[in-house]
Amino acid sequence: MSRVLIIAEHDGSSLNMSTAKCVSCAQAIGAEIDIAVFGNGIDAVAAEAAALDSVSKVIAVNAPHLEAPIAANWATEAVAISADYSHIFGPSTTLGKDLMPRIAALCGVNQVSDIMEVNSATSFKRPIYAGNAIVDVDAAAGARVVATVRTASWKAAAGSGSAELEQRSAAATQASHTRFVGMEVEGGERPDLQSAPRVVSGGRALGSEEQFELIYRLADKLGAGVGASRAAVDAGYCPNDMQVGQTGKIISPDLYLAFGISGAIQHVTGIKDAGTIVAVNKDSEAPIFEISDIGLVGDLFTVIPEMEGLLG
């Protein structure tokens, strides 16, 4: 039987939802599933991981130098405990994208990036060309599978399990060549873009940082997370962590509202898995209308205030 080791993503105090999505992907293989949690003072995170359905064991490795997710340190620890596993999975978030290829190289294999569907324990579907083609990738029999899981393609596994918890000490000391300096967190109080059920997104049409406030106000009315196109981010209307798309975040909210976004393929690839896509654009020919479920040709500067009024 396949044995999958999942590398947990967390912020030191709670487990990131992407980990539960990796569990769903591992369940699709029909494997025995363990989770590795690396960090410093991670008892709460390990307990959360142990509650995920169909997880057999959580391996917690605690050490001060594992507090920040420096890929060189975490990859060494992952490889140190990986001997008995046929598969090693991480999420295709920036953490997983940074870490997993380093693990793959140490294991001497290429990585399967962004698994969206499982065909079998050694065959997977993944997107290429910004989602314009979906390929079947087969892994050679006997070779370890190291992969990232495309979080937008998977539902989070439920949390009613109770896995065994194993504490281990770190296998290596700190890689002295890489030092964590700091983290600037933007966004603040709003729902997290990657897990919010509703997302309101603004594009270049917003025109300025001040006018982007319109997007925040509507989002707050709807209890929604906030996203943006690359053009809006590049123009400095909003922070970079809001970018949705091929090179930003791939999201799958139940409701996505795009205001003044043209619908370039690089943007659309980030929202293809959304439940309902709403587009408001003053150009009736905008490509975003080809993929929207509800479209409105109109000026966002009048439509948004009207919506706010109607939402009370």
Partner: peptide, 20 residues
């Protein structure tokens, strides 16, 4: 390499929606 791509397929298309 350990991986081989065996098939390419177009992505699932979203159905055309409505206009309001």
């Amino acid at each position: 390499g350990n991986l081989s791509v065996t098939r390419h397929a177009p992505p699932a298309q979203r159905e055309k929606g409505i206009m309001v």
